Simulated assay, not measured.
Amino acid sequence: MLPFIQTAYLFALGSMIGWVLEFFYRKFFDPVNVERKWLNPGFLTGPYLPLYGFALLLLFWLRQIEQFIPIDDNYTRKAVLFVIMAACITALEYFTGLIFIVKLKIMLWDYTQFWGNIKGIICPMYSFFWLLLSLGYCLFLDPPITRTVDMLINNLQFTFFVGLYYGVFLIDLAISLNNMVNIAEFAREHNIIVKIDELRAQIVSFREKTLGRAHFFVPLRFSDTLHNSLERYREFREKLSVGNIRENIKGNIRENIDKIKRK
């Protein structure tokens, strides 16, 4: 088991790397972001995604088990390792998403539009991305990260920067969790699942209309903005539900008309 400071460093590094990856992915590749806006990908204010912090810890620990995989061929053994890594991160993603949905009625990400998704939390496409991430980690990141982790043992002054990071992170986390509790209470009151990406869009829209601008780094912070945006979000979900019902009715009518014509 890694010493505490090294574990803290890996978590911080993974959280920031993951935020950067998601930041550019959502801008240029995310099919949901059709307007190609720059979006803060996390529910926290700052540039870190805790899920990726835990993912990097998993990758670092799993990298050590390669020698215990009972396969002689080097390439096959590495391929099996990559699959194990991707499966473990997918499991982490699933249980994290499930806990937020069940306990807080909050959906941090939404894969419902992707084929083969399970509860909108995981899907084959993103599991494949985790596989590529595992491959990239082993080929490019593992050697320098391992050297840095070893270096921390002999350069404890570096702990100042790790401590500074966590000071800011914990303040941000406390504020964001307080907002999450407010969102969860709203979700239970109205018996809905709040999708963070949809709520963020309502907050941006509200701030643009009331203040003339939207702040990139504080999407969920201000209580008045959050309250008004939640009400707008509820109306948005109600309209969406009504729209879906209408589309289903129209679809059934068209289907019945086609059946009559065929007869």
Results as ranks from 00 to 15, higher is better:
residue 74 N to K: 13
residue 167 G to P: 03
residue 262 R to G: 05
residue 76 T to G: 09
residue 169 F to L: 09
residue 42 G to C: 03
residue 101 I to C: 08
residue 185 E to I: 09
residue 183 I to M: 06
residue 85 M to F: 04
residue 66 E to D: 10
residue 174 A to W: 08
residue 138 C to P: 01
residue 258 D to L: 12
residue 191 N to K: 12
residue 204 V to Y: 14
residue 204 V to F: 10
residue 190 H to N: 03
residue 138 C to N: 11
residue 113 Q to E: 14
residue 55 A to W: 03
residue 231 E to F: 00
residue 132 L to K: 12
residue 193 I to M: 08
residue 201 A to T: 08
residue 107 M to W: 05
residue 131 L to K: 09
residue 183 I to W: 01
residue 260 I to A: 11
residue 224 D to H: 15
residue 92 L to R: 00
residue 169 F to E: 10
residue 86 A to E: 03
residue 92 L to Q: 08
residue 157 Q to Y: 14
residue 235 E to N: 14
residue 65 I to H: 00
residue 81 L to V: 04
residue 209 K to L: 11
residue 21 L to G: 07
residue 48 Y to G: 10
residue 39 L to W: 04
residue 220 L to P: 03
residue 36 R to F: 02
residue 13 L to W: 00
residue 167 G to T: 05
residue 246 R to A: 14
residue 77 R to P: 00
residue 239 K to H: 09
residue 149 V to I: 09
residue 256 N to Q: 15
residue 20 V to E: 10
residue 68 F to Y: 04
residue 235 E to W: 13
residue 45 T to R: 11
residue 240 L to S: 13
residue 129 F to V: 13
residue 79 A to T: 11
residue 116 G to A: 07
residue 151 M to E: 07
residue 146 T to F: 00
residue 199 L to H: 00
residue 101 I to D: 07
residue 207 R to Y: 01
residue 235 E to V: 11
residue 177 L to V: 13
residue 199 L to I: 02
residue 238 E to A: 11
residue 254 R to F: 09
residue 119 K to H: 13
residue 122 I to K: 02
residue 145 I to M: 01
residue 219 P to R: 04
residue 155 N to D: 13
residue 263 K to W: 14
residue 260 I to V: 15
residue 96 T to F: 01
residue 243 G to N: 03
residue 148 T to Q: 09
residue 87 A to R: 04
residue 175 I to S: 07
